[in-house]
């Protein structure tokens, strides 16, 4: 089994990685395995690391974390501190006891706002995001409803002010095509037809073209493939609007084609 976890240690420590893993009661068994089976001394395979959620330069950052969504934001907080940026973290969770890394975050004093739901209710998003500020970048990671609410409020912000990372795929409507399309393989030659009931990844696999993949939900970025021609229909939860518009890469586990033909760098 392969799972994606956010690195939440010190990125300048070249010898160790740290990940934080929430037990997902309704999960597929990955987190239960980490909690119940994995022990010190065990060996695990690593693919990556990769970064779908980069910290871009800004003079001010607002980090909004919900629950285990704190993990990818933790190194960003450290980096923002290192860079001397003006930053604020608003961190919500069910209860204090369920919120990881509060001790590490305490050293940052008033920059960190801890919002346990049982004490304070939900994060007051209009308070933090109500006034768009062109100098601030907003980073948010957490449950889908939090991300959706932050996206709604940030619609009033300048383009690209908000960056999010999702642990659960964004809801997608039906694909726009109901007919097959062809995928041309630029490097290896050959063409694979993708019927409506298969993903590009599955159709490639059936044709013996292996693309490394992991989540199969358009979340992790493992199956990123360069698009050389044609118009992809993006159905992932990773790319932002500008990256979608560029149309030069796609995640073949979920994304499809708008036209009759796509040419991929495979």
């Amino acid at each position: 089994m392969t799972r994606q976890y956010s690195l939440c240690g010190n990125r300048w420590d070249a010898e160790t990685y740290r990940v934080g893993v929430l037990r997902e009661v309704a999960g597929r068994g990955g987190s239960a395995y980490v909690h119940d089976v994995l022990a010190v001394g065990d060996l695990v395979g690593l693919g990556g690391p990769r970064n779908n959620f980069p910290l871009v330069p800004a003079s001010r950052y607002l980090f909004v974390a919900g629950g285990i969504g704190i993990t990818p934001l933790l190194p960003m907080v450290h980096q923002a501190e290192l860079l001397g940026a003006d930053w604020t973290l608003v961190y919500g969770g069910r209860t204090r006891g369920s919120m990881a890394f509060l001790d590490e975050l305490a050293v940052h004093g008033e920059r960190v706002h801890v919002v346990p739901q049982d004490e304070c209710g939900l994060i007051d998003l209009p308070r933090w995001l109500g006034a768009p500020d062109p100098a601030t970048k907003v980073y948010c990671c957490g449950p889908g409803p939090l991300l959706d609410a932050v996206e709604r409020i940030c619609a009033a912000w300048p383009p690209f002010a908000l960056r999010t990372e999702r642990f659960v795929a964004r809801e997608q409507g039906a694909p726009s095509r109901t007919t097959p399309f062809d995928v041309e393989l630029a490097r290896t030659g050959g063409t694979v037809t993708v019927p409506p009931d298969l993903s590009v990844l599955e159709a490639l696999g059936k044709a013996g073209v292996e693309v490394l993949s992991s989540c199969r939900q358009g979340l992790c970025g493992t199956c990123e493939t360069d698009v050389l021609a044609g118009l992809p229909e993006h159905r992932d939860s990773i790319l932002d609007d500008a990256e979608r518009a560029a149309g030069d890469c796609m995640f073949v586990c979920v994304s499809r084609s708008l036209g009759d033909r796509l040419v991929l760098d495979l």
């Binding site: 990685y17 893993v21 980490v34 285990i68 006891g97 369920s98 890394f101």
Partner: peptide, 9 residues
């Protein structure tokens, strides 16, 4: 935290 473990690799 409750339900959260960290692994160092």
């Amino acid at each position: 935290a409750d339900g959260v473990v960290t692994l160092t690799l």
